[in-house]
Structures are given as structure tokens and as C-alpha cells.
């Protein structure tokens, strides 16, 4: 399936969608958005490459094996829970860093947790899409 319109559109849409997904992730704490939706948008972006230029291109664009992303996301989320344990607080207690960072606004373990959700969702969706497309 090679459609000129689709591949041109993809080239334009791809950066926008990826940027939008990160935007959703970061702003999720104060406005509608969050890791889950952000991850879904990012996954759709990669799926778009798959449909316009084929599976191999999509894999190359992602760089990581999606299964690895699943594990990494879970690890991030889990690590965000473990950090407070080190500080002597219950598992998954939110820890916040006092300094404000320009873009992220605030840094703390829930941000890491959300990032974990984001990465995992990208991984889960793409694992399924890739596995199904291979047939």
C-alpha cells in the first residue's frame, strides 16, 4: 500500500503528533492529558508510519523493540515507588523536588510514574500492532 498523500501527510503529521504526545504528558498534571493519552498518541504516530511506509520503517523509527519499552515503562513506574522506600516512607509516596524546572514545572516521583505509564502504553500498543502486522 503506497499512497503519496498518506506518506506526505505522515511526514508533516509525525513531528506534530510526537510533540503533542509529549505536551500531553507534561501538561497532564494541571490540564487534561497525562501519560496514558500521551502514550496512545505517540503510538498512533508510529502506527501511521507503519501504514504509510511499512513495518520496517516503523520499527526503525521507534529504535527500541516495543517489548523492551513495556518492561522499561514498568520499571520506571516501579522505581518511582521504590524511591520513597529509600527515604524511609511507604511505597509509592509522592516525593517532590523543591526546585522548579523551566519546562516540567515541577519534578517529583509522580512525574516519573507518569513517564513510566507513557513508555509502557507506547510499548503495549506497538507490540500488538507490530506482532499483528508481521503475519
Amino acid at each position: 500500500m503506497n499512497s503519496l498523500i498518506l506518506s506526505t501527510a505522515t511526514r508533516l503529521l509525525l513531528p506534530l503528533m510526537l510533540l503533542y504526545s509529549v505536551f500531553l504528558l507534561i501538561r497532564g498534571h494541571n490540564e487534561p492529558g497525562g501519560g496514558f493519552v500521551g502514550g496512545l498518541v505517540a503510538a498512533s504516530a508510529i502506527a501511521l508510519i507503519k501504514f504509510s511506509s511499512g513495518l520496517e520503517r516503523a520499527r526503525a523509527a521507534l529504535r527500541f523493540d516495543p517489548i523492551t519499552l513495556v518492561g522499561t515503562g514498568l520499571l520506571f513506574a516501579f522505581a518511582s515507588g521504590l524511591l520513597p522506600l529509600v527515604a524511609g516512607m511507604p511505597f509509592l509516596t509522592a516525593l517532590w523536588w523543591d526546585q522548579k524546572i523551566p519546562v516540567l514545572l515541577k519534578a517529583g516521583t509522580p512525574v516519573l510514574f507518569d513517564l513510566g505509564v507513557y513508555v509502557l502504553v507506547v510499548g503495549v500498543v506497538l507490540t500488538m500492532i507490530f506482532a499483528l502486522s508481521e503475519e
Binding site: H29, E31, P32, G33, G34, G35, A94, P110, V117
Partner: peptide, 21 residues
């Protein structure tokens, strides 16, 4: 307490983070 104004998301990643996990 949780540094976020989006209550839905704060519930997901902070109050009920264990469920989300």
C-alpha cells in the same frame, strides 16, 4: 499536596498510584 491541578491525573499517578500500577 500533589502539585497538580488536574484532579483526574493526580488520582491516577498519586492518590491511587498503586491501582494504576
Amino acid at each position: 499536596l500533589a502539585n497538580g491541578r488536574n484532579v483526574v491525573n493526580v488520582i491516577l499517578v498519586d492518590y491511587r498510584a498503586f491501582d494504576t500500577m
